[in-house]
Design a protein around this nucleic acid. Structure first.
Lengths: 217, 217
DNA sequence: ACGGCGCGAACGAACGTTCGCTCTCATAGG
DNA sequence: CCTATGAGAGCGAACGTTCGTTCGCGCCGT
């Protein structure tokens, strides 16, 4: 529920932080192997080479560990999104942002963690609430970025920003999901395709009444 | 482990099938609410209004229920993919296929089930093995479709079929994932974008040759 | 001597599964 | 027509196991 307060004391020493990180790392290994709810505390203990009593000194519950990991994931995502605030064309920044995101997910373990967090977020859990909050923040950030792009004429003034944004995010997540499902999928060979997709999505829609399928001859 | 044999007898009466379906439906409701591994048999029993003993007459274990559901999901996916064998332009069929897929996922419950199956498939489980088998079959089907498209010149002869295919599938899954994460996401407003994305992905690098047109009404 | 860290046996609860029972109902024999 | 019979459907208390968590006690640096 509470994502900020440590278990017992408000102040944390560097060694405590290190220990916490050690436990979280062990938990990640276990969770990515079997998922949040099929991983037992005993397994995390074994992976971290600590006893239950030791771990419970740093985290109040198993859920607290899950929440801490979800938090880390969100912060990592936010840091990547901040690429959008750097200089460059909208298309370039979006592509760079996407590729950076994909780069951090090269490890199958990372994909599994991300998915686990996503799945957990869709349920009525503390993780879900936190996820929604972060998602809303990210959206505001992106809306500002796109609004500025409208001002400079990089995208049409009447573009449906929300849809464009969401579709791009959906695409990035989809590629990562596919990387997890099918390790053969080579994103590097897909890079030029990705670039074209970004261009295509940024293009403004034609007349609203036009049929969705364009006739090409 | 075994996806085909029923629990006790090889032959199944229509009433038995109906009962099985009833149990699976209850299980889906529970699973989409809390996930495979946080749903207890007791909950499924309550939802199905049956006792444990009753349910275990139809399924050998909880895992057997999960496997049956994963199987249903795969078969549904395959049926949608068969749109690709119908007449029409490649672009048209791909878009229709994607939109049909998305249509079946309008229900949040369906998205959650799909994701649950995906996550389970990434682990070393019986579901994972079955998933890999289906995935391989689907790939063969798609490779044939694309090979034929090359023959008719709908895509360039040197196009990287595997990458194109995977990227499109990734996109579809991504959109669905986003629909689950963010119920505000309105796919209908995204439809023209989706169409442009399909076009963009199908384009080979270099000069774009226009695919021939066959519209279906 | 003392505060903390860390241990690991032990706890109650909840899990998936089993098993012996009752009930139902189609059929056969009288 | 009635009733005996047997197979299967369904039940639910109970099983052994495993779960997340607790707690009292040694250990160690100061």
């Amino acid at each position: 529920m509470n994502f900020n307060a440590p278990h017992r004391s408000e102040a944390t020493s560097p060694q405590q932080d290190e220990r916490r990180a050690h436990i979280l790392d062990a938990a990640r290994t276990c969770f990515s192997r079997a998922g949040f709810h099929r991983t037992s505390m005993q397994e995390i203990c074994a992976e971290a080479k600590m006893s239950p009593g030791g771990i419970y000194r740093y985290f109040a519950s198993k859920d607290a560990i899950i929440e801490a990991i979800a938090q880390e994931e969100q912060y990592a995502g936010r840091r990547i999104l901040e690429v959008m605030l750097e200089p460059g064309s909208l298309h370039d920044r979006l592509l760079r942002c996407g590729l950076t995101y994909i780069e951090t997910m090269r490890d199958r373990r990372a994909v599994q963690m991300m998915l686990e967090v996503y799945v957990e977020s869709m349920r009525n859990t503390a993780v879900g609430a936190f996820f929604a909050k972060c998602e809303a923040e990210n959206r505001v950030l992106m809306q500002e970025v796109f609004a500025r792009a409208k001002a400079t004429g990089e995208i049409a003034a009447d573009a449906d920003i929300d849809t464009v944004m969401m579709t791009l995010v959906a695409f990035a997540d989809g590629v990562i999901l596919r990387m997890g499902l099918n390790p053969d999928y080579d994103v590097e060979r897909a890079e030029t395709i990705l670039s074209r997709v970004v261009t295509a999505v940024l293009e403004n829609e034609g007349p609203v009444t036009a049929p969705p399928l364009e006739r090409r001859e």
